[in-house]
């Protein structure tokens, strides 16, 4: 395997409060290989967005990185001054968020925004940058890009805006695209198009993708590997087919079984009792233990790290070698 493009090591995101420090992302570690699509999935509040935001150093105070390292192409980027980091965002890391309007300025035309991004990161004349912008718009499936380039964001539909955001994210040929719930605000027919587009264009540009979503279907369609988050931690990580069809962690397993299927009929859906704990009440040991049908003594006392579980890695004591069950 080639050297990882991105390495995240023991990343901690915390919020100081009057009643102590809340840990929202708790020692998260993973790698992304060049060109790979890593899905990050989990229910709301699991810490997915904060993980992504910490990687690009856009945490909003009082949120802060409380520990760990983020290494992009061998270089540590979590401790860079904001000035340096700004150059990395847009150039080496492109971004796509749920609401395309957070990435687009309503006062400027699509063309102005694209050419600005292109010229910030590449030495091109105005005419050459405009040609490049039209190419990008055509690549992301905007019809008649020569005329649409001078339109404003509000003149586009939600799906078309998200296409423009993908064009912007790819404008400087980044090595990594961070996409946080890129299709969550879209209807299913538009979502299908945007997922296919994101996957295709990133592959063509050779960009790896960190795809954050709560939707396991989107992950199944797009990702090579997937990390499942629960209460600020990665509970399972592995090849997407293994995690989806053959989950090892009891949480992943329960989560998959609770999703209604389009192809199978079931009398009842499998059910995980309770809900994810609030940050103020994360249980000791394995954070999932109060809801886990297989919890045993050790789970309540000791926090499990990611352990080899056959084809994936799972943070679960069931996979501790010396304490193999039965």
């Amino acid at each position: 395997m080639s050297d990882p493009l991105l390495q995240v090591r023991d990343l901690v995101v915390e919020f100081p409060t009057r009643r102590g420090t809340l840990t929202a992302v708790d020692k998260v570690s993973f790698d992304i290989a060049p060109g790979e699509v890593l899905g990050v999935v989990g229910e709301s509040g699991a810490g997915k967005s904060l993980t992504g935001t910490a990687i690009i150093n856009l945490l909003e105070p009082p949120g802060r990185i409380g520990g760990g390292e983020v290494i992009l192409q061998g270089e540590r980027i979590d401790n860079l001054p904001q000035e340096e980091m700004r150059k990395i965002r847009g150039k080496r890391i492109g971004m796509v968020f749920q609401d395309p309007l957070t990435s687009l300025n309503p006062l400027y035309t699509i063309g102005e925004q694209l050419t600005e991004t292109i010229q910030t990161h590449m030495k091109l004349t105005d005419a050459a940058a405009r040609i490049r912008a039209i190419e990008l718009l055509s690549e992301v499936g905007i019809p008649a890009p020569e005329s649409r380039i001078d339109a404003y964001p509000h003149q586009f539909s939600g799906g078309m805006r998200q296409r423009v955001v993908i064009a912007l994210a790819l404008a400087a040929n980044p090595v990594l695209v961070l996409a946080d719930e890129p299709t969550t605000a879209l209807d299913v027919s538009v979502q299908a198009q945007i997922i296919a587009l994101l996957k295709k264009t990133c592959a063509e540009h050779g960009a790896a993708v960190m795809l954050i979503t709560h939707d396991m279907g989107v992950i199944a369609e797009t990702a090579d590997r997937v990390a499942v988050m629960y209460a600020g931690r990665i509970v399972e990580i592995g090849p997407v087919r293994e995690v989806i069809k053959n989950a090892k962690h009891p949480y992943t397993d329960g989560l998959m079984a609770s999703i209604p299927s389009l192809t199978h009929e079931a009398e009842r859906l499998a059910q995980i009792e309770g809900s994810m704990p609030r940050l103020t009440a994360i249980p000791d040991g394995c954070a999932f233990h109060p809801r886990c049908p297989q919890a045993f003594d050790r789970c309540r006392r000791e926090r499990p790290e990611l352990l080899d579980a056959d084809t994936t890695q799972a943070a679960c004591w069931l996979y501790a070698k010396e304490e193999a069950v039965t």
């Binding site: 538009v190 299908a192 989107v218 199944a220 989806i244 389009l262 192809t263």
Partner: peptide, 24 residues
């Protein structure tokens, strides 16, 4: 049929689907 084809294939069954076109 288009709606059904648009739903992500979470079972990874590889069922045949026609790409969706256009918007409402």
């Amino acid at each position: 049929r288009m709606l059904l084809d648009a739903v992500p294939d979470i079972d990874m069954s590889g069922r045949a689907r026609t790409p969706v076109k256009g918007e409402v």
